[in-house]
């Protein structure tokens, strides 16, 4: 496990030196999507609350970064955390609303939220630049580093580093008390409350946390494209995030990265045939995954790995435990 992580880290570190700059740029997007989709893993996978409106939090993050950078000239070191903070606060607010709306109702309300984002952005022109959106200063690496790395490579490293922090934080927080409480609330709220888990605290926490991650992703994408416009944050974006998390795997960190890869590269591949193919493939894949492989790509991979391991060592763990139990009882 640790070895695999180190290998992946090395791969991510070395890739920009061998691939063309455009692919580096695309992989920056993958990392940004992976952060947002990790937010949905926390929200849907761990806490059982659905959101079809996380594009709204990406919009908050993107416009916060855009307004701070373009309007106030504040650097991205400050504006990315502020974007996360603002999206997180709004997320906590929506989390309180979500407490009252179970299941299908929450899906419906968050989809309506996603649909409300472009009209709101277009309406408040003074702040958001209306239909034209906002242009940001073109991104570049910090002064002393400029001779060594291109801006694509710099933002690639920055985004993957942020992703690493986001994943590590999620790993440490979810493996302990918080993760246990969230899963308990998801599986049986009544039982969890009886054991002293505070549903208001943990469920709004999950909402705010996942919204903050979406805010970071939105800020990064606005900064690297040097542009924020209402049409970027359409209903389609929110649905893409959901598609990413379902196809990648709802309960898996690896699934968040796989989901990011799917969301970034599937449209590019589909557009070579016809722009509409993307939606058809997404839709059909979503249905097939939900019916036949609820664990998504990550679930499929781990099943494959387990099957290979069992073949390699015929005495697999479940068998030995059964033997151990029967020995004890004998």
């Amino acid at each position: 496990m640790r070895l695999a992580l180190v290998a992946c880290g090395l791969l991510v570190a070395l890739l920009p030196w061998v691939i063309p700059p455009f692919v580096t740029f695309q992989l920056t997007y993958v990392a940004a999507y992976a952060i947002a989709i990790l937010g949905l893993v926390i929200l849907i996978g761990y806490s059982g609350q659905i959101s079809l409106g996380h594009g709204a939090f990406m919009a908050i993050g993107g416009y916060t970064a855009a307004i701070l950078l373009a309007g106030a000239g504040i650097g991205y070191w400050v504006s990315i955390p502020l974007a996360a903070l603002l999206a997180g606060i709004v997320g906590i607010g929506l989390g309180f609303v979500a407490l009252r709306l179970a299941g299908v109702y929450l899906a419906l309300a968050t989809l309506a939220l996603a649909a409300s984002v472009p009209p709101l952005l277009k309406r408040f022109k003074a702040l958001t630049g209306g239909v034209q959106g906002l242009s940001l200063p073109s991104p570049h690496a910090p002064g002393p580093l400029q001779p060594f790395v291109s801006s694509e490579t710099w933002f690639y490293y920055l985004t993957w580093a942020l992703a690493a922090v986001a994943f590590a934080l999620a790993w440490f927080v979810l493996r302990g008390r918080v993760g246990r409480s969230l899963r308990a609330l998801r599986d049986s709220e009544i039982a969890a409350v009886a054991f002293g888990v505070n549903p208001v605290f943990y469920k709004t926490l999950a909402f705010g946390w996942s919204a903050a991650y979406a805010g970071i992703a939105g800020a990064i994408i606005a900064i690297v494209t040097a542009y924020a416009s209402p049409d970027v944050y359409s209903v389609a974006l929110s649905l893409e995030l959901l598609i990413g998390v379902v196809i990648g795997g709802l309960h898996s960190f690896l699934g968040a990265i796989l989901g990011g890869i799917v969301v970034e590269f599937l449209p590019l591949w589909a557009q070579k045939i016809n722009p509409a193919v993307e939606s058809v493939v997404y839709g059909v894949a979503l249905i097939l995954v939900v019916i036949f492989a609820p664990g998504g790509l990550a679930g499929g991979l781990s099943r494959l790995a387990r099957a290979l391991r069992i073949q390699a060592t015929p005495r697999s763990r479940p068998a030995s435990t059964i033997e151990a139990i029967s020995e004890k009882s004998a």
Partner: peptide
Amino acid sequence: VEGAAPLTIVIVTLGLFTAFNGIAGW
């Protein structure tokens, strides 16, 4: 998915939503 959790059916209908939109565009 008839007896499945509501969220599962929601995701299936969202898949239909996306697929139909694409089919019409195609």
